[in-house]
């Protein structure tokens, strides 16, 4: 029999109400409060422990609370972790999200919670945690527990999982292709959608536009004449033998190449391996993508302090945002270590 552990707040953990919201985390062997119902509904696992923590304790001492609870779990065997249901309780929702995320990261087990759609925990943690669409209040306890138990059983059984809307959890920002049971071809779907849109009827897009990403704005360089500037590109400029075997499309690899002794990139020594465009221009003059020649002149003129010793390269075509973000983070480690002040990233 597989094992499950449930996280509850002070109220559902039967410690007390608002006056006990500062209650420090404890772990209890066996079933407390809703754990009994969860244990009853779960077919493929037994609930072995209940963790209880006050909502305010988690809110005000998050690091300590998480550290304590992860400590509790270190010597426990468990295959799945539940938290809540949190209904519309905002602090409880936050606590469920925080602990589920931490448990998933540390132990790699599936984590499941349930919240009402208006619980702020949904927006904060739906990408990290399976959060099921739950009721407004504890009146829906049995129903919400049944839902998460059923899904937990599916996960533990390695069953095929349906899309979020069919399973009942909030979408996690993950999209995969599926074949429609109806076999309705795209030609019919697109024409039907247009007819509805033209007639002012409601229609459902198959690609809801996600909210745009925002990156914090870096503070400006104060004295450019003392700054080290690095060149990065996604146009696939590499030494002609492509020593890091960076892929021509859907890249997962990147490379950095010493340019400290070069005035410009020479054709024949460097080329592009990017499969997404006509390479002729960049092969003839790699500086059209990686403008080392121009940056060197600015270095000589004293506009910048110096050009960083390496340039960094990968390929942008078909490369997913996730891979691009990872490679960017890896590159920035090197750039920070070399005290680079600014980067010119040329994309193609």
């Amino acid at each position: 029999m597989k094992k499950a552990i449930l996280y509850l707040n002070q109220f559902f953990g039967q410690i007390g109400g608002e006056d006990k919201a500062d209650f420090a985390p404890v772990i209890k062997e066996g079933l407390v409060g809703p754990a009994t119902e969860l244990d009853k509904k779960l077919n493929n696992a037994q609930v072995t422990h209940t963790i209880i923590c006050g909502d305010n304790f988690m809110g005000s001492n998050q690091d300590e609370a998480v550290e304590t609870i992860l400590g509790f779990l270190e010597d426990k065997e468990f295959d799945i972790f539940f938290a809540g249901p949190a209904f519309q309780a905002g602090r409880y929702g936050n606590a469920c999200g925080v602990i589920c995320k931490a448990v998933k990261e540390k132990f790699g087990v599936p984590v499941i919670s349930s919240m009402h759609i208006e619980n702020p925990g949904v927006e904060m943690f739906k990408k990290d945690v399976y959060i099921f669409k739950g009721g407004h209040s504890a009146a829906k306890m049995r129903k919400d527990i049944k839902t998460i138990a059923k899904f937990g059983d599916k996960l533990l059984n390695n069953e095929n999982l349906l899309p979020a809307e069919d399973e009942g959890y909030f979408p996690r920002g993950i999209r995969h292709q599926v074949w429609l049971d109806s076999n309705t071809p795209a030609s019919d779907r697109v024409v039907d959608m247009l007819i509805k849109k033209l007639n002012g009827e409601t229609f459902e897009t198959e690609l809801p536009i996600p909210k745009a990403d925002r990156v914090p704005i870096a503070s400006p360089i104060k004295d450019l004449s003392k700054a080290t500037i690095a060149l990065v590109n996604t146009g696939g400029i590499v030494p002609v033998d492509n020593p890091d075997r960076i892929q021509s499309a859907s890249a997962t690899r990147w490379g950095r190449y010493d340019i400290s002794s070069m005035e410009r990139l020479k054709s024949g020594e460097f080329k592009t391996i990017h499969a997404g465009f006509d390479p002729a221009a960049a092969d003839a003059d790699p500086n059209v993508i990686l403008p080392l020649d121009a940056l060197r002149v600015y270095e000589k003129e004293g506009k910048i302090g110096k050009v960083h010793e390496y340039f960094y390269s990968t390929v942008g075509t078909g490369t997913t945002q996730a891979e691009a973000a990872r490679m960017g983070k890896e590159m920035s480690e090197y750039l920070k270590e070399a005290n680079v002040d600014g980067v010119i990233l040329v994309s193609t």
């Binding site: 979408p171 993950i174 995969h176």
Partner: peptide
Amino acid sequence: VGWSTKTMKDF
């Protein structure tokens, strides 16, 4: 072009 019976779903 329109044959596709595939779509994309959120998970």
